[in-house]
């Protein structure tokens, strides 16, 4: 296992050798390329204990790509992902996902409760239909997100914030131990953002891990336990207090990006003739 980061606290290294508790999430050497143009290079990190993890970086830094690659939604050039010590493919039932809002056809003929019920499909497996137990669970999840009484609305008739909360309710219905959320706060009202953060904190207190792609730097310090700064490469990963520093943020957001871009262009069009 490569120790790539100076920021990695020492107690984590000890935890890692602890056989009884494998890390929640271990990403090793993940590289993603799009048409021979690298988008993420050699991402390497491990979440060792339940936490609220924020993924932060500028636009186009590959935050969503990182989540999608971890979940196996994108072809990966190299690297492995392990969840609770096993390949992610074998642990899908323990992994929840909240995709970006744009990924869905909002005119689809489906009601709110049916969307939330989809969270239980993974556990149901092939051919079996959701029954009263699943319905009850779905209603509870809706109530937890404050969406009582909306269950038979068509999904497109809700406001943006409500739609996002339906997605979260669906994730809750997955009853997973590790969640990935792709910009759940994008385009929602302040009340919804507050409600979402509250649920995220509850999940963490129940011993679950939530990995959130986030775009609003202001709310980072007080909300997240761990922070992952990414800009095509992993800039830093560690406790928020250690990582949320002016120096590292500058490294993530600004500065010498020009040469990286130039290289990317070179990679795309073929190399210059020497």
């Amino acid at each position: 296992m490569n120790q790539s980061l100076a920021e990695m606290p020492t107690e984590m290294k000890h935890k890692r050798t602890d056989i009884t508790a494998p890390p929640v999430l271990e990403v090793h050497d993940l590289t993603v390329a799009y048409r021979e143009k690298p988008v993420l290079w050699h991402i390497d990190f491990a979440v060792t204990k339940p936490a609220l993890v924020g993924i932060v970086g500028p636009n186009g830094a590959g935050k969503s790509t990182l989540i999608k690659a971890i979940l196996g939604l994108l072809p990966v050039s190299s690297g492995t992902v392990e969840v609770f010590g096993r390949p992610l493919k074998k642990e899908r039932l323990h992994v929840g996902y909240v995709p970006q809002r744009e990924s869905v056809d909002w005119d689809f003929p489906i009601q709110v409760l049916d969307v939330v019920l989809m969270g239980t499909y993974g556990r149901l497996g092939w051919f079996r239909r959701p029954r009263e137990t699943e319905r009850k669970l779905a209603r509870e999840c809706l109530a937890r997100m404050g969406l009582e009484g909306l269950e038979s609305r068509q999904i497109g008739q809700l406001s943006g914030g409500q739609q996002q909360r339906v997605f979260l309710a669906r994730a809750l219905a997955q009853q997973a131990d590790l969640y990935f959320m792709d910009e759940p706060m994008a385009g929602v009202d302040a009340a919804t953002e507050h409600a979402i953060f509250q649920v995220l904190a509850e999940l963490r207190d129940q011993g679950k891990t939530v990995v959130v792609v986030h775009h609003d730097l202001r709310s980072v310090p007080e909300k997240f336990d761990q922070l992952l700064l990414v800009n095509q490469r992993l800039i830093a990963y560690g406790p928020t207090s250690d990582v949320f520093t002016a120096d590292l943020l500058r490294k993530t957001y600004g500065g010498r990006l020009a040469i990286l871009e130039e290289l990317a262009v070179a990679l795309k069009v073929g190399r210059p003739t020497p």
Partner: peptide, 12 residues
């Protein structure tokens, strides 16, 4: 049909 990325993430 409704949400193919979610479906894929949950293993379908």
């Amino acid at each position: 049909l409704f949400d193919s990325s979610f479906a894929q993430a949950t293993g379908w």
